[in-house]
Design a protein around this nucleic acid. Structure first.
Lengths: 128, 128
DNA sequence: ATATAGCTTAGAGTTTACTCTAAGGCAAAT
DNA sequence: ATTTGCCTTAGAGTAAACTCTAAGCTATAT
């Protein structure tokens, strides 16, 4: 059982963002007698999952879609499976792009190092 | 020598975006007698590089910084090297996150497949 | 009793990166 | 000569994801 500020500290996101996620249908904490949000461990686990999806570029709208399917029950499991498989492809694409760009940067960085160590006596083109 | 619409087609970005990038100090095509933008191969190569940086989550502001350093000449080469090395770290972080999330999705997807093939007779928790 | 800290809401404001509109210039085609 | 197509500009509009403000409630501390 956590207050909004405890969750905020645990997950390193602001309370504003937590309220925003609730407004967007991404998380639904329960309320205590004072009408204050109470998060349980299941909410924490779900939010950690959400943050990973975000970190891997899944838009809020799609995260909400997944959350809603979950709330709709077991008959949505194959829809959820599709969503996860699509996101996995997206992740694999991202890894490909990043790996290519990392290689390119390795080359450029090596060129800069040679250039600098030789006392800037070489030409570097826009592509170096 | 390319017109703005040719560059737009070659790079699959809109002419609006190309003008926006110029306003933001990211690319500086020359102008013909009619005041129209003329892009050369160097601009194309630079824009291709810019698109990779964007694709790997470098913000426009930082891309502009790199472009400005380039325009300021050779004495900025070590500043540019720092920028590229920082971005390489960022890329490596991203690859780590993506790889972890891919593994997590592999597990979840496998669970969903078992669940569905067994005729939904199992329990799936929020974390599956 | 009242101050303080932390919670609530609705709704406005911000940032980033485009995306589009309006008004107009110029050149080739009909 | 005028239509067509492509170009120009300044500046307004949009979408996503926050981020904050204002007004107010409630529990504990002094």
């Amino acid at each position: 059982m956590y207050t909004i500020s405890e969750v905020s500290k645990l997950l390193a996101i602001t309370t504003y963002t937590l309220r925003y996620y609730e407004k967007e249908g991404i998380v639904a904490p329960i309320r205590n007698a004072n009408g204050e949000r109470v998060y349980e461990d299941t909410h924490l686990a779900w939010l950690r999952f959400v943050l990973r999806l975000k970190q891997t570029q899944m838009p809020i709208s799609q995260i909400r879609e997944y959350a809603q399917l979950y709330l709709e029950g077991e008959h949505t499991s194959s829809a959820r499976l599709n969503l996860l498989e699509d996101h996995r492809s997206s992740i694999q694409d991202q890894i490909r792009h990043l790996t290519e760009t990392e290689k390119m940067l390795n080359d450029k960085i090596a060129n800069y190092k040679v250039f600098i160590s030789k006392g800037n006596t070489l030409d570097l083109s826009m592509d170096d």
